[in-house]
Amino acid sequence: MKTLFRILPLAVLATALAPNAQAQTRKPVAKPVAKPAAKPATKPAAKPAAKPAPAPTTPARAAAPAPAPAPVAPAASSTASTPEAIGPFQVGTNMVNVGIGLGNRYNYGTGYFGGSSSVTPALSVSYERGILALGPGVVGVGGFVGYQGATYDFGGSDRWKFTDIIVTLRGTFHYPVAEQFDAYGGVNLGLRHASASFEGSSIYGSLGSASANEVAAGLFVGGRYFFTPSIGAFAELGYDQTYLKVGVAAKF
């Protein structure tokens, strides 16, 4: 019994101390940490407005305007200031004359046997091309071909017939007078072929026929007037096959 009474107080004491021990051994529950309130976003510091540049103490001098370029004078055109520009014959121009010659240069037996002679107009063709500008004019080169026939009549059926052919080179200098007019002069140098044959039954028939060649040379001056850009007329005075030639001129 005494033992029981000793145990009971101990058991009661142990029971009373048990909650305290549990309380001491139990870890305290951690309190949730309060989140700090979100701070408002900081506003960017306003940049100070740029101060206007201080006005210059002295007024700025206005930039002087660039001087206007002097007008370029148009180059003087040589074609406008020289007669070469207005003449119809220029470097590279081709011209052809087709003409009739009057006034024969050669004697076709007139007065030898008391008969009479007749000479046909000479037919001629000449060609020139401008090759070189020389001073106010143009130098041209080309050729000339002329044909002329004549008859010396004894009377009846007896006659001599003559044939005269000239082929020459031709050199000219052209001076422009106006836009439509071309003045020129030059020289011919080449060959003349002359032949004669007898027709009839008289004693002169025994002479048969003959021909000869000789050097032909001559001087001439002339002019051309163009009615259109390519067609005109010409006239020449000279000492070659005939003394005067007139006819048609063409330019191309």
Rank of each mutant, 00 (worst) to 15 (best):
E179N: 13
N94F: 01
R129C: 06
N97T: 10
N20L: 13
A46M: 13
L169C: 06
A55S: 10
F113E: 04
Y127L: 01
V177H: 05
Q180P: 14
T168Q: 10
P32F: 00
P67V: 00
V91D: 00
F5G: 11
Y152S: 03
D153S: 03
G238R: 01
L4E: 08
A11V: 15
P44G: 04
A76W: 04
S230N: 14
V91K: 03
V248M: 00
S202H: 09
G200Q: 05
N94V: 11
A194G: 14
T58Y: 06
S157I: 09
H174D: 15
R61F: 08
F198G: 14
F162V: 05
I86D: 02
G143F: 06
G238A: 02
P65Y: 00
G208P: 12
G223K: 09
G223P: 13
P83Q: 00
A235N: 11
A49V: 14
L237C: 08
D240E: 12
A41S: 08
A41E: 09
G114M: 00
F234P: 10
G232A: 04
G101C: 02
Q241E: 01
T15C: 14
G238S: 05
A14G: 15
Q22P: 14
Y127Q: 00
G171R: 13
P36I: 04
L189P: 05
V248R: 01
V12E: 07
A41C: 03
A63Y: 07
V119P: 01
T120N: 08
V246R: 03
V72K: 03
A14I: 13
K47D: 11
Q90K: 07
A68F: 04
Y127E: 01
A250G: 12
S124E: 05
P83M: 02
G115D: 03
P19K: 00
A178P: 15
P54F: 05
E214N: 15
V145H: 02
G142W: 02
S195F: 03
V246P: 07
L10E: 10
V248T: 05
A14N: 09
S206E: 15
V98T: 10
A18T: 15
I231P: 12
I131E: 03
F198R: 08
F89K: 03
F227S: 11
K31T: 11
R224F: 04
V139F: 14
Y239P: 03
P59W: 00
T82W: 07
W160G: 06
Y106H: 07
A76G: 07
L132S: 07
G109N: 01
V215Y: 10
